[in-house]
């Protein structure tokens, strides 16, 4: 967690290899991505990382199902083989009825759930979520957070989520605070079962 401009999104982009650090090293799954070329970073992102964005970033010309399938296509994997997984995710996230709809025909929650399916389809062990509820209503935000909890518990994925939202942070096993591009020392909170009040209090204590 951190205030605007603290470097949350930059951190995710550095971790995903979308951006490169001006100093220091970035390691993901034991691999130093700072030393990788652009192609290798892209492959790493494709295989190891799933992205969920605040603004969904669905391809407007593709249907829900096609958006979900997109990473399979990019990875050159057979759609036939991935069919079961696509169906499972669409069922899991309650999108079966919306599979042929274009993003512009979906609600915010549906769009973000589609985005989540897209992040999960490739089987990436790490999910990077950039304020996934930031653009959603409270109800839709809760739906998305429940879906993320499912990913963590049932799908056994590691989720790194950046947020402003204390309620979202309370779902986490571990909360770190970021301020002016630095981790705030002694501000780490360990879950599960973190309460919103304790997170709030920690934030206030560090002037965030």
């Amino acid at each position: 967690m951190g205030p605007s401009g603290s470097g949350k999104t930059t951190l995710l982009q550095l971790l995903s290899g979308l951006d490169t650090p001006s100093a220091g090293r970035v390691e993901v799954a034991g691999q130093s991505i700072s030393e990788l070329g652009e192609r290798e970073r892209t492959i790493l992102r494709r295989e190891k990382i799933g992205f969920v964005f605040q603004f969904f970033n669905l391809l407007p010309t593709l249907s829900v199902e096609e958006n979900v399938e997109l990473p399979l296509r990019i990875a050159g994997r057979s759609l036939k083989d991935g069919r079961t997984e696509v169906e499972r995710l669409l069922h899991q996230f309650n999108l079966v009825d919306r599979r042929d709809h274009l993003p512009s025909q979906l609600s915010g929650g549906e769009m973000q759930r589609t985005s989540l399916c897209r992040a999960l389809i490739s089987g990436a062990p790490l999910l990077l979520c950039d304020e996934p509820t930031g653009n959603l209503s409270t109800k839709a935000g809760e739906e998305v957070m429940r879906a993320l909890r499912h990913c963590r518990e049932k799908e056994k994925r590691t989720i790194l989520l950046v947020t402003h939202n204390v309620r979202d942070a309370s779902f986490a096993d571990r909360v770190l605070l970021l301020k002016d591009g630095q981790l705030v020392p002694d501000a780490e909170l360990i879950g599960p079962g973190l309460s919103a009040a304790s997170i709030h209090e920690t934030l206030e204590r560090h002037g965030i």
């Binding site: 979308l18 892209t42 992102r45 494709r46 970033n57 391809l59 407007p60 010309t61 990019i74």
Partner: peptide, 16 residues
């Protein structure tokens, strides 16, 4: 541009 950026973010290579 945005679509291209998204596809690059989710693993599309330059060649693709």
């Amino acid at each position: 541009r945005k679509e291209i950026g998204v596809m690059k973010a989710i693993g599309m290579t330059r060649r693709q």
